[in-house]
Every structure is written in structure tokens, then in C-alpha cells.
Design a protein around this nucleic acid. Sequence first.
RNA 1: GGAAAGGUGGCAGAGUGGUCGAAUGCGCAUGACUCGAAAUCAUGUAUACCCGCAAGGGUAUCGGGGGUUCGAAUCCCCCCCUUUCCGCCA
Length: 423
Amino acid sequence: MIDIKVLRENPNFYRDAAAAKNIELDVERMLELDRRVRALKTELEGIKAQKNEASKDIAKADPEARKVLIESMRLIDRKAETLESEYTPIAEELEELLYRIPNPALPDVKVGKSDAENEVVREVGDKTVFTFAPKDHLDLGQALGIIDTERAARVSGARFAYFLGDGALLEFALMQYAMSIAAKKGFVPATVPHLVSARVMRAMGYLEHGGHEEIYYFPKDNLYLIGTAEQSLGALHLDETLDEKQLPIRYIGFSPCYRREAGSYGKDTKGIIRVHQFDKVEMFSFTTPEQSEAEHELLLSIEEELMQGLGVPYRVIKQCTGDLGLPAARKFDIEAWIPSQNTYRETHSTSTCTDFQSRRLNTRYKTQAGETKFVHTLNGTAFALGRTMVAVLENYQQEDGTVRIPAALQPFMGGKTVLAPRA
RNA sequence: GGAAAGGUGGCAGAGUGGUCGAAUGCGCAUGACUCGAAAUCAUGUAUACCCGCAAGGGUAUCGGGGGUUCGAAUCCCCCCCUUUCCGCCA
């Protein structure tokens, strides 16, 4: 949600900002509706003021005078009803349109049509070199008996997986590794609700512009399955006014992520790169506007620290406007080197959503000076556990089909150093 | 899922159709008293939006929505949430 006052003053800014995100806005329509809403509201409030005034008179009047007054009130009432019936649909349409305005990208973000125009910020680590033909993660995982997609397909359909034995332990190790690093930096560990209300899903910016197609929904309960812990962590301070002294507030949450993957039918059909359910460790920060730039840097730096600790080659991508989506004002992705595909694949993403989500969430803070302002919200992946396992398995594989365990994870796997098939 | 009781300002807690945005207490802020503090006293103390350059004015808000009424915190309906008991379950 943007500030409508700013829209009134500078409609072109929003039109252009939306266009950069490939979203067309009828700004003229919004301004027209806004003018009408305000005019009607002023008129309506005048009538209500009359009514309120008259009610006081009636209370004091003697019985005869009262009858007369009540009669005249009925006439005023009818006028109020007419105005109200005009006002409501217009106000609703306006709100609907306002919710579809994307968060404008920050000035340093490159304007571009699609992910093809994203910028590579840096590449870190040398691409893994093999003296043999590397296998892909599914072949490795199946041979090791730690990934089972065939039985998962029987049980749940395509795009599901079981992690078994060391596979499950590897996932837990990654989670604990991420948690241990972030907790040292003051992130509050969290597990979160996996189902959220329609209000929350909308506030986080995931329902507009076809977003609901990607989300599992339970009509009977009017609840949505989260696609990321961001959605429940971000709503943690729904309708709250925080204190400036508390900020920044940082969480690191673990949750499964549920995604319908509608429209991605041909893509990544083999293995666990793209599945309907995966686990993720996610960071989320609430900051003042002044803090949010540095916070975005911090989230990215933690992501890189985690990847470097793991020893997986990666690159950092800065998304262009066309790839940002509705709530993000700036987004960096980290892509891990995936040998079997001879390319980098996205494993992390960190966004600043400035005050876009907080306006919808009504999460504010009181400044030292006593002002009430909206917080900034930022999110960042610590590990998408499934995809990180893919990166680890493929980059750490050896010619005999075993997989070395990265040193950073060994303490969380009971000191084990190699994944080998079960005897 | 069944039964019951509730939901009022930062907190506690009155208020069952009119002058109630709401008593009172606590808390908080400012001032007085004091060398200073405590205590005491005085005054003040919600949020959002609209109109306005401003001063100021107006509207809405007693869990949410709808209804009855000239008028609703108060009456009626629906929903949400909390608590307790039962059932079920991890």
C-alpha cells in the first residue's frame, strides 16, 4: 500500500514506477475516484453533524417539539442514505485499485523488463572442477538412499520428496548451522504458523496480480498455506505500534513452504529443485526507515557468510525492476553453482519492502519524538534447505558416488564427514 | 464438535437507549511544593480520516460486520477472538 497523499501530489511517479515493474495503472481513474470519495465524504459528514446536533436537541425537547424534530430528522436521514449508497462502492473500488499499486523500486535498481536484464553483482568461489562426469543431485540422492521422489509421487503426486536417513540429517544440519550463525547476530529463532488469514496474505502482497494462483487455499477455513515463513513472520506485529528503541527487531524462522507451481509444468521436472513443499530458514527484520538500507546489506552479507561457510560457489544477482514483484523495492538473489546444469540456480533472495507491507499490516513505531511512523520490513533467505542440499550434494560429490560433508555441517551431523550408501 | 461466560481508553474497571469518546483508579506528561527525591496537590493525557495556509472545525471508532431507532457501548442478527468445563487429539 502506498500513501495516497503522495499519489495525489505525484501521480506520474507511481505510473512510471509501476510501468517499470510491468504493471499498468489507471492513475487517472484513481485520482478521479479519490476526488469523488472525498467530496462525498465531506458532504456525508456534514449531514451526520446535523443529525448529531439534532439528536441532542431531541433529547432535551418536550414531547410536542420532539415529534416535530423527529419528523424533520427522517428527511435528513433519507438524504444520508442516498449519499452513503453512492459513497460505498466508489470507496471500495478506490481501495481495490490502491492495493494493486506496486512498491516503487529504489533509485539504484536498474529498470528492466525481465530477469534477462538482472545484473550480476559478483561471483564468489571457483566453479567446482571435476575429474570425472558429475552426477546430478537426484542420481546421487537415490544412490545414497537419501532422496526418494518416486514413492513421494505415489503418495502425493509429482514435485514432492522424501528425505531419508542422512538426507534428513543433512537437512537438519543445514537448519542448525543457519540458526546458530543468525542467533549469534541477535536474530530471534522462530517457528511459525503455516496457515495465515486472507488479510495477512493480502497485506504481505501475495494476492494481487495473480499471486493467489501460486498459493494453496482452504476455502472452508478461509486460510492460506504459507509459501514462505516471510508471510507469517512479517505479520507477527500486525496492528502493533512498536517503540523506536526496540528496532531493529530480527527473527529467523523455520518453516515448510508450500507452492502450487502453477504454470511451471515443463520446468525442473527432475529432482527437487522445484517442488510443492520444501523447508526453509528465513530471516525477517523490522527497522526504522533510516536503518533499512544497512539492514538490507546485513541480510545479504549473512546469506553470503552462510554460503561461504558452506563452500559452495555462488553469484549475487541484483534484480531489475521487471523481476521485483509487488512488494519489493530492491531484491538480491544468490544463485548457487549447480554442476549438473552447468549454471547457477537461485537459492537465496533478500528484499527490502520499505513501508509497503507495514502500511498494509498496520505495523508502526513511535519515534523518540513521539511521532507514529510505519516500520520498514525486510526479508532474506538463510537457507532454502532443499535447494541448498542440491548444491551441497552436487558440488561435494566424489567419483565413487559418495559425498563429502562440508566442514561447517559436520558438527551438526555427529562429526560424520562423508555420505555413503547404507550398507 | 457440545455447553457456559466474556471482549470498553496504555492497564484495571464502571456504564443496559439520549447531554457518553466514555466515571473512577493506576500509569504517563507538565507544573507547584522540596536542596533533591518520595509523598501530596493542580492540569493534561486515544487513534484514524476529512475540510482548512492556519487557527480551528467535522466524522468515525466501546472485538468486526449488519440491523432496529430521530438517537446504540447499551436492544436484535451474523462473524471473529478469549476463558472455563466436556469431547477429541499431539
